[in-house]
């Protein structure tokens, strides 16, 4: 494995850990900040956490399905 790939892997690990740490902090912050949204649903505890995560998963899953239907060879139009 090249040096750069090792570096990238390390950076990826640190970034993931940092994100998890941030995520935990943001969930804890729910107890200290009176969060309210533009619609009532948004006022539910950790709503943006659940919605942001699940919407992202949903988008990728639909993307995977869509790829099966819409993906063609690179030179399809040529």
């Amino acid at each position: 494995m090249s040096n750069l790939n090792q570096h990238l892997r390390k950076m990826g690990n640190y970034a993931s850990l940092f994100l998890v740490f941030l995520g935990i902090l943001l969930i804890i912050s729910e107890f200290f900040v009176h969060r309210h949204g533009e619609i009532e649903l948004e006022d539910l505890p950790i709503f943006p956490v659940i919605y942001g995560f699940s919407a992202s998963i949903f988008i990728v899953v639909v993307g995977i399905v869509l790829r099966r239907i819409l993906m063609r060879k690179e030179d399809y139009y040529d």
Binding site: S16, L19, V20, G23, L26, P48, Y51, G52, F53, S56
Partner: peptide, 11 residues
């Protein structure tokens, strides 16, 4: 919360 957890989903 929205953006960080969307990033966590990607991760």
């Amino acid at each position: 919360q929205l953006v960080i957890f969307a990033m966590l989903a990607f991760t």
